[in-house]
């Protein structure tokens, strides 16, 4: 299967586990692009090896996570300067397995139009379903997909929200398998809270999803923050596992978007322009699963 691993995807840092998970679980075996790897923890920090060749893989510790790559010289990891802002609260939500392509997971994360139907009473309501036009741009300097000026009415936008509110969103695809959203903070006027997902492909149609939050919120308990985000992601998960094919179609024609899908359209085009094959329908003549 790794003959479908394109160079762009192969050169990305991929999330392995959050820092607490490394301490709790290591040593453990898992998969990275269908290749079995072993993750150990030692006095010098985590060490990761391929189990098939024995080769040591590069290791990076950043943003509360341990990252690795099959490529010995991965591209630089994306920047999230908000991690350096004093007073923000970081909450990693723990990995959740999903049987679909990592790219389907990212695309769903970028989607506004499903809020009223998949997250009713939390991120949307069936009385306000319209997606107001927003702007999508490819930021050439960092080679990222951004969607800005996104707005949506949300009954309970965050764990700390006390009432429904019109919420401003910005979406950012930082890597094929990593995305960040910035949304109006209920805890600090004029500021944005960050929610991110980092996806590790186990196989082309199975992955492990790590969600994290970086927020201005001194009120909520850890437990309620975690469960707020976990509830939302589990509502998405049943959708994700039932989108067929599990591989993401990049070519026009197989799926029909509307203007509300502008971010998804740009994301698919960006993947195609980078020659991404892994996790897509590219190169598969007749996809059925």
């Amino acid at each position: 299967m790794t003959d479908r691993l394109d160079s762009f995807t192969r050169s990305q840092w991929i999330v392995i586990e959050d820092d607490a998970g490394i301490v709790r679980r290591a040593p453990f075996e898992t998969l990275l692009f269908s290749i079995p790897i072993r993750v150990a923890n030692g006095p010098d920090g985590p060490r990761i090896h391929r189990l098939d060749t024995g080769e040591a893989l590069p290791v990076l510790r950043r943003y509360g996570y341990v990252w690795s790559a099959l490529d010995p010289a991965p591209r630089p990891l994306f920047e999230v300067p908000e991690f350096d802002e004093a007073g923000r609260r970081f909450t990693p939500c723990g990995p959740v397995g999903v049987k679909t392509s990592a790219l389907r997971v990212i695309e769903n994360f970028l989607d506004l139009a499903h809020f009223p139907f998949v997250h009713p009473g939390i991120l949307g309501t069936e009385s306000e379903t319209e997606v107001i036009p927003y702007r999508v741009e490819i930021r050439r300097d960092v080679d990222e997909v951004w969607a800005v000026d996104c707005g949506f009415f949300q009954p309970k936008a965050m764990a700390a929200s006390s009432a429904g509110a019109q919420v401003e969103y910005r979406y950012r695809v930082a890597q094929p398998c990593s995305a960040v959203l910035y949304k109006t903070s209920p805890g600090r006027a004029g500021a944005f809270d960050l929610i991110g997902i980092l996806v590790r492909p186990l196989h082309e149609t199975a992955c492990e999803v790590h969600a994290w939050m970086l927020m201005w919120d001194e009120e909520s308990s850890d437990e309620s923050l975690l469960q707020f985000q976990q509830e939302i992601f589990l509502q998405d998960r049943i959708i994700l596992e039932n989108q067929i094919p599990h591989l993401l179609p990049l070519s026009a024609g197989m799926e029909i978007p509307t203007r509300a899908d502008a971010t998804s359209i740009a994301y698919r085009r960006w993947l195609k322009n980078h020659g991404v094959i892994w996790g897509t329908c590219e190169g598969i003549p007749e996809v059925t699963a």
């Binding site: 039932n242 989108q243 067929i244 094919p245 179609p249 799926e255 029909i256 978007p257 998804s264």
Partner: peptide, 8 residues
């Protein structure tokens, strides 16, 4: 399959 995004 929904023609939009493939949902069952």
């Amino acid at each position: 399959r929904c023609p939009h995004r493939g949902m069952r």
